[in-house]
Design a protein around this nucleic acid. Structure first.
Lengths: 238, 238
DNA sequence: ACGAGTTTGTCGCAATCTGTCGCAAACGCC
DNA sequence: GGCGTTTGCGACAGATTGCGACAAACTCGT
């Protein structure tokens, strides 16, 4: 379908550009950003599979962007740095980085590490953020916020329902905790006894026409969270 | 939820044992193996979350075990080696290793890398083998968590029942002790007088419509554990 | 700005899930 | 058969979830 999309965030053009050329030659799609802020924007635009991130940059620190990515459950991160200090490596990894490569680096090693990380990441984690997708006999249009049964009449979704469904469709089969869902759909932390997600799930299930006895599309993992149990395929224009 | 289970495969006791002690002190469950063959056996027993694997060992090579793990979709691997050669690192990573640490290593860095890898492989073991399988006249859908008798109406399984059934279906004919089942389904150790598994089996048997006098699908091995006595065939999509 | 209609979060109770306990039944051994 | 051990499973309790009802927040037309 599509090659993985790598975002390189580094203020030094003489690192950024040769690396981009090399990765493109290896079949990746590559985007560039010269600052943490640009990198953040690029990630929010969507469809980034992995971020290669320089730690030392003027302005916002690379580590802080890394932490932000981790907290959001965003794409995986490989940190890049001139510092060989072991303590820095450990801090980086503990912050949520998936790997840590020291400059100067052999591009082939970085490539191998990129592949190793991507191999382990549920590939759907960073696909298209929107569009039309088909699942379990439904067609979901994220832009129009509608849900159409195989046959006919479209059902309107509220914006919260639409966000929840998008998040689930982005990660089919993956169990998401209430905390993650809250963060991803509303961008907020859970209060004590927060049942907002349970309700959204309940409402969405109803619109999906689920059997309350036996939900087959949005499945509850007891003590864990929720999971989408359906195959999802992106839909082109019709 | 449950501590991850690390398997250390290294022929050198003076590496293996201090490392095991350290990882245990950090809250992991740890198993040891002194050869690739032992390591393979330990993985097949199940419930290993991650393998730390020495490359240089007498007898079977660590790389060959690594390749076997990858091919099998087994747990992630971190290679450990005395060789600092970049080419070796790249080969290791391309073989399917998730990370590569050079001896002598700082245990804290290895720990951070273990955590980094585990972070990206959440409940892979629990959710991985999903799909539909047919056995003893039933069709089990691990994703939707349903059980359908040859003819008709599907029965809903709970999370725990589904996990137990998946574990049994993964190993038809093999006797699994309560300890193994607990580990594989709940990722925890048995307490004294722990009868949780007996109960799950009992509940699952009821949903399978077993004759209490003489269970024919999930068989009790007296003094041993339980065993699935049925042929299992994977089911394609229909 | 105001008010009607929608959407979304909070509360509370009923239902469900899962581990623990206890006792009777089943088993292996002498 | 007697006896200690192991297993089956009903009953129970604590935790978790489903969801109806209500209220707060928001949307929009006027």
């Amino acid at each position: 379908m599509s090659e993985p999309h790598i975002l390189i965030v580094d203020d030094a053009r003489d690192i950024r550009e040769p690396l981009a050329t090399y990765l493109k030659s290896q079949g990746f799609r590559v985007s560039l950003a010269a600052s943490a802020a640009d990198g953040r924007a690029a990630v929010e635009d969507g469809a980034v599979s992995l971020v290669v991130l320089d730690v030392m940059m003027p302005g916002e620190n690379g580590l802080s962007l890394c932490r932000w990515l981790t907290a959001r459950g965003g794409p995986p991160t490989i940190l890049l740095t001139a510092m060989a200090d072991e303590a820095d490596r450990i801090v980086g990894l503990e912050l949520g980085a998936d790997d840590y490569v020291v400059k100067p680096f052999n591009p082939r090693e970085l490539l191998a590490r990129i592949r190793a990380v991507l191999r382990r990441v549920p590939q759907m984690a960073a696909t298209q953020p929107a569009g039309r997708r088909r699942f379990a006999g439904f067609l979901h249009d994220a832009d129009a916020r509608t849900l159409t049964r195989g046959g006919g009449e479209p059902v309107a979704l509220t914006s919260a329902e639409n966000r929840l469904l998008c998040v689930l469709l982005d990660r089919p089969g993956q169990v998401l905790t209430r905390d993650q869902l809250l963060d991803l759909t509303a961008g907020r932390e859970a209060k004590p006894y927060d049942r907002a997600i349970d309700n959204q799930v309940s409402r969405l299930r109803r619109k999906l026409g689920e059997d309350p006895r036996m939900p087959a599309i949005i499945v509850t993992e007891w003590g864990g969270g929720y999971r989408l149990a359906a195959e999802v395929v992106a839909e082109g224009d019709t």
